[in-house]
Design a protein around this nucleic acid. Structure first.
Lengths: 239, 239
DNA sequence: CGACACCTTGAAGAGGTTCAAGAAATGTGG
DNA sequence: CCACATTTCTTGAACCTCTTCAAGGTGTCG
């Protein structure tokens, strides 16, 4: 028996409140339990989808950790985000019916496959889902605004501080520590996301460690002084 | 008689194909003619909406030119985009029911006000509108991916070249010249958008002019060699 | 016509990159 | 389970791009 064929129902899922609208009637809940077609496992390093792939579904991350990235013709690429449990990927595919970025698992992962035509059909019946889909799309736009601000106006230390605060805040919302985290991505991937070279990321980590703000041991990071990180983000320049 | 009260109908609007779904039945077209509540004029320098404003509508630009920008607590701000006729602004407001950026007219402008609750209601009836709204949101996400790539991995000359090519391409799609344009924004606003200082923008314009790629006279720009601009964008570094 | 905003250009300086080497962790195959 | 190859990370030193500071020029609007 294929484990992917096991009936999946959002109503029983612990991540429901991250992925799905809340306050549904039982009837609506039954309808939405038809939304997820199946689950799909993605091994570390493997793309969930790639630039150019046909767009057929959005994916809700159940477990694991992804990065999304876009590329130029001449081979440079830019990490556009890191996604964790409860977050939705694939939104880039709606406009042109094919994906325009890569989504790659940074650790073994499992996603819920939500075929886009089901989303459209159910959205017309369940207005809470319609609103929810709009909000997910809008949230991604607002998130990217934040990244633009980071890339356009912050210096290296501010970028890394903002990155750490954002990660730990999202992890905390999922029940993890407020002060300790394990990075699932390399220095190079962090650098790509933050518009820095990997050496700069490494140096900035070392500086934070020297200043007693964090403890860094490879990918294990412990935040010793959250307020100091916040101050770094809110301080335009040193002089 | 208040000119704002004149009945507006998308079916007669020359920008219809930029704002609205195509291939509607006459019945659907009639329904969608109820979408725009009214039009609103916005004087140069005046915000269409501001960070913190209640979100009530999306706006389709009829005439004029806007910038959108986000701000940090400590007063820095970042231009997130420039919008022209046929483009939709206000998408940032959906997720939290209030706007998180400013949209400011860079020249006297007029917009069509599309109350969000009407959009939701009509989207459930007219599936072409539903798809269209999703595509508009997704398009904005993909657009921002491009800006992330620009900010994260390009040098000053590449950024400005990409900016000019993008602007002229969008203007051309609206019937303007492929090679000539009038910038509606200051060097500082361009710089904010591109993650550069205004002096760098000015110097880079001068360099392009020296190289015979463009003619620049204040805000009037004539592109003399489009291919050279394309080559600049696709050349990672000089060595 | 005068005040103000905007743009250009120069020179010095800083932040981040590049290049390079070595150390630490991770994975692989015997 | 260990030896070895590979990837990842750290650190130093020189360099370069962009910024900062400054001054003067140009255009625009009341």
């Amino acid at each position: 028996m294929n484990p992917d064929a096991i009936k999946v129902a959002c109503s029983n899922c612990s991540l429901r409140e991250l992925c799905m609208p809340v306050g549904l009637t039982p009837d609506e809940q039954d309808l939405l339990d038809e939304l997820v077609a199946n689950r799909r496992k993605v091994k570390r390093g493997v793309p969930l989808f790639s630039n150019g792939d046909d767009f057929i579904a959005l994916y809700a991350i159940r477990t694991g950790f992804f990065k999304t990235s876009v590329a130029t013709e001449d081979g440079r690429d830019q990490v556009t985000g890191f996604q964790m449990a409860g977050e939705i990927v694939g939104l880039d595919g709606i406009v042109g019916n094919h994906h325009t970025c890569d989504a790659i698992a940074l650790e073994d992962a499992e996603v819920c496959v939500m075929p886009y035509n089901r989303i459209e059909d159910l959205s017309r019946e369940v207005s809470a889902l319609q609103t929810h889909v709009h909000k997910i799309l809008s949230r991604e736009i607002v998130r990217e605004h934040g990244v633009l601000l980071l890339l356009g106006s912050m210096r290296a230390e501010e970028r890394l501080a903002a990155f750490l605060l954002n990660l730990v805040q999202r992890l905390h919302a999922r029940g993890f520590s407020q002060s300790e985290l394990v990075l699932r991505m390399t220095r190079e991937e962090i650098g790509s996301y933050l518009g820095l070279k990997l050496e700069t990321v490494s140096r900035t980590f070392s500086k934070f460690a020297d200043d007693g703000i964090v403890e860094v041991k490879q990918r294990h990071v412990r935040i010793l002084n959250t307020q100091a990180l916040r101050n770094i983000v809110n301080t335009p320049a040193c002089h």
